[in-house]
């Protein structure tokens, strides 16, 4: 219960970052997402841009900025694929919005919370993308539940490491 409650307003304060971090971290994540599967095809299971979206959304704790950040990162990801722009933008906008809303209510600095949160958001992102592909774009996509569970678990583990690295970039108050 201690993980999910904020007893004081001090605990829900926004974390501050250097403005360059907001630009360079997503760009670097998109670069790694494009580059690493070339050397290790299994890396395509990891969704680094989603991790970045969730991390900055829960850190800023502002739903609108979370949605905008998710939109920007998602559209940049779409630009590297052959899909229409906006497919991942919609999914990540919703993920960013919800992550920021959750970040304002629970303690997201705990590793256990981060694992659960990232697991949930990866599944949500996959579900949203599947819905957009099948319902909006009528693309021949299939839902493999085992594959999505594995993907969510891997992303949750990667996110714990990545979030602890990004914590070091916070500005001290």
């Amino acid at each position: 219960m201690a993980l999910l409650d904020h007893s004081t307003r001090e605990e829900v304060r926004q974390h501050r970052f250097h403005p360059a971090v907001f630009i360079l971290a997503p760009l670097f994540a998109i670069f790694l997402q494009s580059y690493l599967p070339l050397r290790h095809p299994g890396f395509a299971l990891v969704d680094l841009p989603l991790c970045i979206t969730v991390y900055f959304a829960v850190s800023r704790r502002n739903p609108v900025s979370g949605a905008l950040l998710g939109t920007g990162i998602g559209i940049a990801e779409d630009a590297l694929t052959h899909f229409p722009l906006g497919m991942q933008g919609i999914a990540k906008a919703i993920a960013g919005y919800l992550a920021a809303s959750i970040g304002a209510r629970i303690d997201v600095d705990n590793p256990g919370t981060r694992i659960l949160m990232m697991f949930f958001f990866t599944l949500l992102d996959s579900l949203l993308r599947f819905g957009i592909e099948r319902l909006l774009l009528n693309l021949p996509m299939e839902w493999f539940f085992g594959h999505e569970l594995l993907r969510a678990a891997i992303n949750a583990l990667v996110a714990v490491i990545l979030f602890s690295l990004l914590d070091r970039l916070r500005q001290r108050e």
Binding site: S34, T81, F83, R129
Partner: peptide, 15 residues
């Protein structure tokens, strides 16, 4: 030279 991928296994695109 192949320098990148789409980053997702749903889009088989190379750069």
């Amino acid at each position: 030279q192949v320098i990148g991928t789409s980053g997702t296994d749903q889009s088989r695109v190379l750069l």
